[in-house]
Design a protein around this nucleic acid. Structure first.
Length: 853
RNA sequence: GGACGAUUAGCUCAGUUGGUUAGAGCGCUACCUUGACAGGGUAGAGGUCGUAGGUUCGAAUCCUACAUCGUUCACCA
């Protein structure tokens, strides 16, 4: 027997081990059709947050649903080494222990990194277990595993040999805190306060000057020209002359280039090829020198003369003071402008000239875009609008800088000897070759995840590839989804997954993003402790529509808990009444109309649930099940069944419906459904290996089902009248009209008596006051002791009549509209006619009563 | 500036190819120690679906414009 109260701790503490012990998460039943999902590997930088809980619960639901529906499901777990992020965390820990990480031997540092990995991997696995995720741990992967590392090297080497990977000297985004290059999308532009400094660049041999506006005066030491537009009437005569670089007192040429926008600023631009990507291009066109004046760590070098060694911002400060002293500043204008920050360290990114490795993107992107026109191999985005976000990005893509100046990651398989380069799977055998010390961007390995986790390049397990669906947030479409798509197309010739289900971000109750700096993050483990994983899961999966963000709201978790508690108590009721129930007692024939009604309702629910499960519309599934369980099953069927609990069929129906409810709900709330399921008189070893309920086409609507709807209508109506007229317990109902409704009532006397807590009787003496309650198929008289309610009665009837009259006139108008009759679907028109008839019928009774009053 | 999303009850959100009386949870009102559940039950109140046009027999839903909020991409030194 179940305890009186649902206790999530008791329910959840041992189930996960039970599933593991029985190998219920293991894939490989070759007799079934495969279904595969790979987990988006969490970073080993810390604990999982609510976003992970949401993302993984969605996947678990899909997997559990498909498994119960007869598929050989494989859900591959794994984690990401997360280069920059993890290295920063490890370094921080080492510093707190008094070490300077960069003074350590690389091998010692790496040993620390691997033990960090083990530590966090084990925390993450515990969290997965708490969430109840049905991951096949025998297939767990890590991005730096041997096989994945091999895959990374192979992809690098092949892309290099095909000419898609090159090494070149470019302006890249450099993070001066993490001390590594970044790709374009790892730079976040933020609006900050800055200034436009208008500087005097004196024209050689004159007292005239050009006014040059810049936001970064400290880069002037790297200027190798100033540019004007060749058609600019103000300046074009100066092209070919020279100006004096302020403070540095160096002569640099005035050049003409169409890059300059005549209408912006002063129309004169200082050109710093080593510190600005646009200037770099201009420099190339005009064969200008590339002079670096800032070092990788953000400090000035000796080109900056007396400012050598200063931090770039300190240099700016002192330089501006000096320029002012020399009268070389015309004005300073405060502005707001977007400045690039590192996604990881939040440092202001320095455009920095250096030699890096790149993936040439144009051709790869084009193939990915073309593939979206291939009906059989296109990736289906859900919701659809995210496909456009993907294609727009791909259409406008730039080369991908993949080298990182870090220790944690896949070392680039390139070796140098003097000015020779060797790129290959293994080191060259001759002496003297030195491997590139850089590692690859984390996303370079993540991009191979869907196939590298399934054995590629050795032997890709084609049974599970392409994956059936990938589930992830819209925030990493560029970082990850798009890169998986083009890498998979390039190396497997197939899409990585058939569908990609995109969800939103978790926000706090105010709608703000959960971040460390705001301290508004919620630890899913705390929520599980307080409400249980099932309540958290139900909240996460049913409270937003696909692609929308989700606000975390503890009140809604509470209501999920309440829902589970309701299910718990309904189950308790069923089990109490099934004491001693044997397999031979189980029979569904000879059912009452009430039994038929709930089975019909259940069947319709199954149909809706399946339809929306298949479309990933879990919010619809959730509310459908919520309403069916709470309203139809608990509020009506259980109540209606109470007069009939001696009947084996009713017991069987209770068992049948509850069993189906547990199965339908299992993907959402695996723990509690497993728990109750195992207490049912007839059950299998685990609910996970039972079959997901199927829709039975042979169960059709009939008049018996309508009869129950009428019973419900009568009960509800009488309750309403009772409350509106403040009639207490002391009342009776009379029905003696010998019509259809009368027969229905006679057949279900007990039910009415029980639910209305009164008696139906044949007649009533005159000491009772009477109220006539009209239905569309007859009238019921309510008799009560107490003061006269004629006024209320009159106003009730008038109110109802007015409403009916307005409905009737609306319907008549509608049904006399030819356009409507001709164009609207027949079922809808028929339904409208039926309702009209019903209302006309009902109003007859009302008019009759009103005339009597 | 481009693109996208949101705007529906006091709050947070649904609304399934357009179907006529727009739903839920929480909150609110009144009543109820009913034999599964008071974290419950019963019955209610509460919305001219951001604004203005348009298409249609019919619009929360489709189209156009605008407004407000948000996200994102691209930004000119």
């Amino acid at each position: 027997m179940l305890d009186k109260k649902y206790n999530h701790h008791d329910v959840e503490f041992d189930k996960y081990q039970f599933w593991l012990d029985n190998d219920l998460f293991k894939a490989g039943d070759m007799s079934k059709e495969p279904f595969c999902v790979v987990i988006p590997p969490p970073n080993i930088t810390g604990k999982l947050h609510l976003g992970h809980a949401w993302d993984t619960t969605l996947q678990d639901m899909i997997i559990r649903y498909k498994k119960m529906d007869g598929y050989d499901t494989l859900w591959v777990p794994g984690m990401d080494h997360a280069g920059i992020a993890t290295q920063a965390k490890i370094d921080a820990r080492l510093r707190s222990e008094g070490f300077n990480p960069r003074d350590m031997k690389k091998s010692e540092w790496l040993a620390r990194a691997w033990s960090w990995k083990d530590e966090y991997a084990s925390i993450i696995r515990q969290q997965w277990a708490k969430l109840g995720l049905s991951l096949d741990y025998s297939r767990e992967c890590f991005t730096m595993d041997e096989n994945l590392s091999l895959a990374v090297r192979k992809v690098f080497v092949d892309l290099y040999n095909k000419g898609f990977i090159y090494r070149g000297e470019r302006i890249i985004n450099f993070d001066p805190i993490a001390m590594t290059a970044l790709s374009n999308i790892e730079v976040i532009y933020k609006e900050i306060e800055g200034a436009f400094y208008y500087l005097k660049y004196m024209i050689e041999g004159t007292n005239d000057y050009l006014s040059v506006a810049t936001t970064r005066p400290e880069t002037l030491f790297g200027d190798t020209a100033v540019a004007v537009h060749p058609k600019d009437e103000r300046y074009k005569h100066l092209i070919g002359k020279r100006v004096v670089l302020p403070i540095a007192n160096k002569l640099i040429p005035i050049i003409g280039d169409e890059y300059v926008d005549m209408s912006f600023g002063t129309g004169v631009v200082k050109i710093t090829p080593a510190h600005d990507p646009n200037d770099f291009e201009v420099g190339n066109r005009h064969h200008l020198d590339r002079v670096r004046c800032i070092k990788a760590d953000g400090h000035m070098n000796d080109s900056a003369l007396k400012y050598n060694g200063l931090d770039r911002f300190e240099c700016r400060h002192q330089l501006v003071e000096d320029l002012e002293k020399h009268g070389l500043i015309i004005k300073i204008e405060k502005i707001k402008h977007a400045v690039g920050h590192s996604e990881r360290s939040n440092a202001i990114v320095e455009p920095y000239l250096s030699k890096q490795w790149f993936v040439k993107m144009d051709e790869l992107a084009e193939k990915a875009l073309d593939n979206q026109n291939n009906k059989d191999n296109r990736v289906k985005f859900i919701p659809k609008r995210f496909e456009k976000i993907f294609t727009n990005w791909m259409e406008d893509i730039q080369d991908w800088c993949i080298s990182r100046q870090l220790w944690w990651g896949h070392q680039i398989p390139a070796w140098y000897k003097e000015d020779q380069i060797y790129v290959g799977m293994e080191a060259p055998t001759e002496d003297g070759w030195v491997q590139d010390s850089d590692v690859l961007d984390t996303w370079f390995s993540s991009a191979l995840w869907p196939f590298a986790t399934l054995g590629w390049p050795h032997n890709l397990d084609g049974r599970y590839f392409p994956n059936n669906v990938l589930v992830t947030g819209y925030d990493i479409i560029f970082f990850w989804v798009s890169r998986m798509i083009f890498q998979s197309l390039e190396f497997t010739k197939q899409r990585p997954f058939n569908d990609v289900l995109i969800h939103g971000l978790i926000r706090d109750k105010q709608g703000l993003k959960m971040t460390k700096s705001l301290g508004n993050g919620v630890d899913p483990m705390d929520v599980i402790e307080e409400y249980g994983a099932d309540a958290l899961r139900f909240f996460l999966t049913t409270n937003s529509s696909p692609g929308q963000d989700l606000r975390y709201d503890e009140d809604k978790v509470t209501s999920s808990w309440n829902f589970i508690n309701k299910l718990w108590n309904a189950s308790r009721f069923v089990l109490m009444n099934l004491e001693g129930f044997k397999e031979s007692d189980y029979k569904l024939d000879n059912s009452t109309i009430i039994d038929k009604w709930i089975i019909y309702k259940l069947n319709e629910t199954i149909k809706v649930v399946r339809k929306h499960m298949d479309k990933y519309e879990f919010n619809v599934v959730g509310s459908t099940l919520y309403n069916f369980i709470w309203d139809d099953f608990c509020d009506w069927y259980i109540e209606l069944s109470k007069t009939n609990l001696e009947n084996q069929t009713t017991k069987s129906v209770l068992l049948y419906v509850l069993g189906n409810i547990l199965q339908l709900l299992h993907p959402f709330t695996p723990y509690v459904t497993e728990h109750i399921y195992q207490m049912l008189p007839l059950h299998q070893k685990s609910i996970m290996i039972s079959s997901y309920p199927t829709y039975d086409k042979s169960i059709k609507w009939d008049e018996d089902i309508e009869k129950v709807n009428i019973i419900i209508e009568i009960i509800t109506k009488i309750r309403t009248i009772k409350q509106e007229n403040k009639i207490g317990k002391d009342y009776f109902l009379i029905s003696n009209l010998n019509n259809e409704i009368d027969i229905l009532i006679k057949d279900n006397f007990d039910t009415f008596n029980k639910l209305l807590k009164t008696k139906f009787i044949e007649s009533l003496d005159n000491s009772y006051k009477k109220i006539d309650i009209p239905f569309s198929y007859g009238t019921i008289i309510l008799g009560y002791k107490g003061s006269d309610k004629e006024d209320e009665m009159l106003s009730n009837l008038q109110k109802e009549r007015d409403m009916l009259l307005s409905n009737i006139s609306r319907r008549e108008k509608l049904l006399s509209n030819e356009g409507y009759i001709n164009k609207a679907p027949k079922e809808i028109v028929d339904e409208e006619r039926r309702k009209l008839e019903e209302e006309c019928n009902k109003i007859k009774f009302i008019e009759e009563k009103l005339s009597e009053l």
